[in-house]
């Protein structure tokens, strides 16, 4: 029935600005490795089939579903999780905007939303409402009804412009 277990392999990942080599089974998902080997539990797992967007991370600046990749595929890429945003003293403007605008309730979809929003703003500093809705339409939220998320991204654009 099940495949014989593969040997573990070493993979070097650049995560949140630091390189680290970990030993993984080739079949281990990037989402699982980030959570279990790197302790980055801000990577939330919601569906494991690439629809909900809760596990979204940035790979070379682009939003990617970490549940749809194996960790071994991420060698050499620059990975950012929500833990990389802001500092203990000061949140990233996107986080601040989500806080101000009540862009979250249970917080489970939030890391994916925040990272997707950040990637959008890095590309389009002043997005229209339609652009925001389109860019975040791959991230499901069951609590907020999205309206305050849209307002949060608009506010984040303002905060980033203010520098």
């Amino acid at each position: 029935m099940s495949e014989p277990k593969a040997e573990k392999v070493a993979v070097t990942l650049n995560v949140n600005g630091a390189e680290r080599t970990v030993t993984v089974e080739p079949r281990w998902l990037l989402s699982d490795v980030l959570r279990q080997e790197f302790g980055l539990t801000g990577v939330h797992i919601g569906c494991e089939h690439g629809v909900c967007g809760a596990c979204t991370i940035l790979v070379d600046g682009e939003p990617v579903r970490s549940c749809l990749q194996f960790a071994v595929q991420a060698e050499g890429a620059r990975i950012e999780t929500v833990e990389a945003l802001g500092t203990p003293e000061e949140m990233d403007p996107v986080q601040t905007a989500f806080w101000e605008k009540h862009g979250l309730q249970c917080g489970y979809c939030t890391p994916g939303m925040v990272l997707t929003a950040k990637a959008l703003l890095d590309r389009v500093p002043n997005p229209t409402e339609a652009e925001i809705r389109h860019a975040l339409s791959g991230n499901l939220c069951r609590c907020t009804g999205y309206q305050f998320i849209v307002e949060a991204v608009e506010r984040a654009a303002e905060l980033r412009a203010e520098g």
Partner: peptide
């Protein structure tokens, strides 16, 4: 919100 926005909320899976 601050803990949730930083990805520091601790859910059962964590």
């Amino acid at each position: 919100d601050p803990r949730l926005l930083r990805g520091q909320g601790q859910y059962v899976a964590d």
